[in-house]
Design a protein around this nucleic acid. Structure first.
Lengths: 180, 180
DNA sequence: ACTCCTTTTCAGAAGTATCTGAAAGATTGT
DNA sequence: ACAATCTTTCAGATACTTCTGAAAAGGAGT
């Protein structure tokens, strides 16, 4: 039987994997990340395969993605030809990495698209029937509201990232004041 | 050929759908949400099926999910037996709804699990060999860092939601100050 | 240049998620 | 009570994602 430490780690890894769906990444990638995050020492591919019971190809692919995200780095031990992997353990930095990537992949493209959508309608208002012009005005307002909101969020994330680790606490204190 | 308004709407819907993967929801649900968000008037199931080219069953299922999330509501028009649907159009409220749901589904369960993991190890430290005790200490520290971080985020989200629509701007101003 | 060890790639297999369409279930009006 | 109209459900079909394992590629040492 595995000891308490093993069981505890397995539980953490499992739960982290279950959360993956909500984050739009696959389960194995999340489990792999969890495994590396809680490991005291860097692990090599064979150890990862063993721990998560996955194939070599699967391990290789998912490691690559994590490295691409900047959440995991490759380690070379001298006298050992195997590659070892270790996760970013500073949680604040991890958060920064994820926020930066997601903002780039998600927030920015949608802001860009909204702007194009708005342009497309604005340039052609005059070609529309009267009742469709009314419809277009409502639509434009909806687009504008969304764009404003996303731009604000984007700015907020920028500010948060720039403010470094202290930012979070600072924000919370401000909000508590505002809420009163 | 569809006019500029139609093309613009289609573009917005498509892009919203493409973003769905990142948010852990399915494409159709996202498209359906986008469609309702930009529609001036509530739509019925047939109109939705036509607009997104999906089957009745698919429409029904996804509408239900959106209603469950609280992002869409059912509308009854008198003299019409069909049900109509409309999306929350206040973007701030939409954000609130989503944050509340996701916090409940994601942040809280993982905080709970970490706490259990920590307990499991803390209760059994003495049964471990010396070198594994060292390993356990590292592991516990990692868990603690993650738990602290998530607790902070959780508190921040609480404060943000409590502070209402003004909160976002307030936060940004604070952060800009901190960053300087 | 060859051997040995490791990592990467990728075609096909396996596993999941999503969608359809028809049948069952609801609801309203007559 | 029945007919008409609309909604929900769900088994099976389809589409998509992820995984495996073996072959190819990479690279260090002799």
């Amino acid at each position: 039987m595995h000891d308490a430490l093993e069981r505890s780690k397995a539980l953490f890894i499992r739960r982290w994997g279950e959360m993956s769906g909500y984050w739009g990444i696959n389960r194995t990638m999340a489990e792999l990340h969890a495994l590396l995050y809680i490991s005291a020492e860097p692990l090599n591919t064979d150890q990862i395969m063993e721990a998560l019971q996955i194939s070599r190809g699967n391990a290789s692919m998912n490691i690559r993605q994590l490295v691409n995200w900047g959440l995991v780095s490759r380690i070379h031990k001298k006298g050992d030809r195997k590659e070892y992997f270790t996760a970013q353990t500073n949680v604040w930095e991890m958060f920064e990495t994820i926020v930066r990537e997601r903002r780039r992949r998600e927030v920015e493209p949608i802001i860009e698209t909204i702007s194009r959508c708005r342009q497309l309608v604005a340039d052609n208002m005059s070609t529309l029937e009267d009742d469709r012009q009314q419809e277009a005005r409502v639509y434009r307002e909806r687009l504008d509201n969304m764009a404003d909101f996303l731009t604000t969020i984007n700015g907020l994330l920028n500010a948060l990232l720039d403010s470094g680790q202290g930012g979070l606490g600072q924000v919370e204190r401000t909000l508590v004041k505002v809420a009163r």
